[in-house]
Design a protein around this nucleic acid. Sequence first.
DNA 1: ACAGCCATGTAACTTGTTACATGATTTT
DNA 2: AAAATCATGTAACAAGTTACATGGCTGT
Lengths: 178, 178
Amino acid sequence: MSIRHSLLALLHEGPRYGYRLKSEFEDRTGASWPLNIGQVYTTLDRLERDDLVRKEGADGEGHVIYRITAKGQTEVSSWFSSPVSRAAPPRNELAIKLALGLTLPGVDVGAIIQAQRGVSIRALQDYTKARRDTAAQHRPADTARLLVLDSLIFQTEAEVRWLDLCEARLMQLANPPR
Amino acid sequence: MSIRHSLLALLHEGPRYGYRLKSEFEDRTGASWPLNIGQVYTTLDRLERDDLVRKEGADGEGHVIYRITAKGQTEVSSWFSSPVSRAAPPRNELAIKLALGLTLPGVDVGAIIQAQRGVSIRALQDYTKARRDTAAQHRPADTARLLVLDSLIFQTEAEVRWLDLCEARLMQLANPPR
DNA sequence: ACAGCCATGTAACTTGTTACATGATTTT
DNA sequence: AAAATCATGTAACAAGTTACATGGCTGT
């Protein structure tokens, strides 16, 4: 539901055409989450189907403009005002992999942890570099991109620390304290 | 692809029937990620379609048994031996919401942050309680469940700290340093 | 008798993803 | 002249989710 709501939120600011929605989304969230342009058009079709936006012919330059409806505005407001539910957190593929690997014979969990730590630390460096390269202006879009990068950095740091903990717990399992 | 691979991984240990796969998955990952039983059967159908498992009539008790194929075993091995890619991290709905909210007029980002912090801290308490209640035996399945809870705890802690940072950055934006 | 778990499935649906086709305009 | 970007769309598909239907078996 992220893309759906994101496009709707951007349309809340004013009528836009598809390609511009893609640009604006990426401008605000950075290159971390690229948005396939095809996805934009299919999502717009579905938003229109659900009466959240209306397709309007063409503007001066011949662009196909979409305008948010009253129902769409209600939807955006309720999206922004309701917190992201932590009742059913998204499945964490890494955690699942380690948890299952631990209980299955013939899986070298230690090797998985080490390989993953390498990947995560490299990702962390990339994010940190991207963060340095992001203009520290005080334009909202810059701040937005910084926040997204910070979020990825925090998440990845937590992942690395979790991997360390897993490794420690793994040793406990190998040498169980009597 | 998580569920697909999880079921395949469990079948790697030996032939199973659908309902048992659900139980074993939840036994190892805890109640954090419930697995809808319907999902198990549809996923098994698709695994069979892709020649990763084979449906075998019935065992002694009349259960519909699935057995992993050679192709399936290859798939499981490559899943366990390849790290989770951080090249295209899953979209973080919370980060998107804040980033967009920051650039849009009429969105009270401060309120979002506070509401979200409340939700996250409550989730953190629930996870911590669940962790205390989880048997600290040295059975692999217990360790697995502990690791999953630790993962959720680490992630949520990181989220709370990130929210604090967002709040601080928000004030900077409101009172830009000359 | 009733609730709850065990057990198997189907149908309809959602979001998201990719590949493809097409063409105009702009930059190198 | 060629490459890149702007711009719109369609078709096919994947994974995941829910609701529904069905029935046996077990414990209270």
